[in-house]
Amino acid sequence: MDTDILLRAEGLSRHFGDLLAVDDVSFTVRKGDVLGFLGPNGAGKTTTMRIISGNLAPSTGSVSVANHDLLEDPRAAKASIGYLPEQPPVYRELTVTEYLDYCAALNRIPRGARRGARDTALERCGLTDVRQRVIGNLSKGYQQRVGIAQAIIHQPLLVVLDEPTVGLDPIQIREIRSLIRELGTQHGVILSTHILPEVQAICDHVQIIHQGRLVLRDNIGGLARRMQSTALQVAFRHAPEPAALERIAGVRSVDAQDGGRVRLYCEPEQNPADELVRRSVENDWGLYELIPEQASLEDIFLQLTTEEAAGGEQAA
């Protein structure tokens, strides 16, 4: 067995009555991965996370964490997971310290090591100043941090965070992001989010789920390649016939717009800009604008989640 693989999810499906919330989802997470889980509301992100954290049994499929099957050997598997649900599972009547002590005990940290584990978690999540405050009196952002502290207190191999930066202010978001990156060096991290720049900022793998199915699985490098310019926005004073533009090597299709503006769709990895400029000068097309269009993560996301089955096949 590959010891680097922290999580192996195979063929996960989950029905809620007639609703198929998660449909045949398989993926792996290795040590050192930060996997971003993207999807529109109701796509199955939270359901998937509840399944891999052991809060929900899958209808079919299996999950193994650090080579322990979640259904057959739940205790060992769950000891290797730290989970932050959508709503931080905090007891409002306890103080931060009391709560984390309880979490440390629940996660079977040996008695002698609990204080150290708690202090480390407090420090990593920036909670040292509020350690004696009652959780119910803390702001939403601090409660969220307490939730994260709870998920990492036992130094799990795999940290599963469901929308960890919701409700935080920009400074806290930056701190939490750097914390997640730091976690990613020693642990595996899965986080779900609908904030796209967040994925670009902290994840090294991206997974897009739509209507319960995985429609994209790529590392951040591959994603950057997808996002490279695939179209040129050009404007001419004397617009040529579209056919003349289509003859340029690397141009896939031409979309003529009003006012001499033309949109050129290019073959991947090819840039016809040089050739275009040369021909413009030769034929006096009067090129005065040339903008490479950068596809953003939003574009890819929208493309994958609005095109139905066709988008899915293309991405796979």
């Binding site: 954290s53 052991g54 809060n55 739940p74 769950k78 997971i81 730290g82």
Partner: peptide, 14 residues
């Protein structure tokens, strides 16, 4: 109701 059951469910306890 407070969604704290997840804490117990995801801890290594039966």
């Amino acid at each position: 109701r407070n969604r704290t059951l997840a804490l117990l469910y995801s801890a290594p306890i039966s």
